[in-house]
Amino acid sequence: MTQQMLDAFQVIADPSRRYMLQLLSKDSMTINALAENFDMSRPAVSKHVKLMQAAGFISISDIGRERYCTLRQDGFKELQQWINYFDKFWINKLTKLESILNDRKKLTGK
């Protein structure tokens, strides 16, 4: 299965992921330690961690037999720019306008 890719805004849209980032802002943590703070299974936590890693919010390093999660700045940089938010916003809106006008064409022929 190919891994789902989320952009920075989709990453922080989820409350659990926001809380994970908040916990990691205090210190690096193992995935197990992180999972103790949540009512979800370890694989579910691990899935969130992988999504955040892919989006540049955290890095994972193997130390001994444990996997440690550490915050990375890259993901947050994207959030600090309005232009990144509105770039996605306009693609979204213009695509919607396009489909509305296409439907109108089908219905009325003009």
């Binding site: 980032l21 908040q22 802002s25 205090k26 700045q73 947050f76 959030l79 600090q80 309005w82 232009i83």
Partner: peptide
Amino acid sequence: FEETVHLPVYPLMQEGWKK
């Protein structure tokens, strides 16, 4: 758009980075 807009996103995170 400003070249760099420093929104006060997650002041907590900043502390984390410093650490």
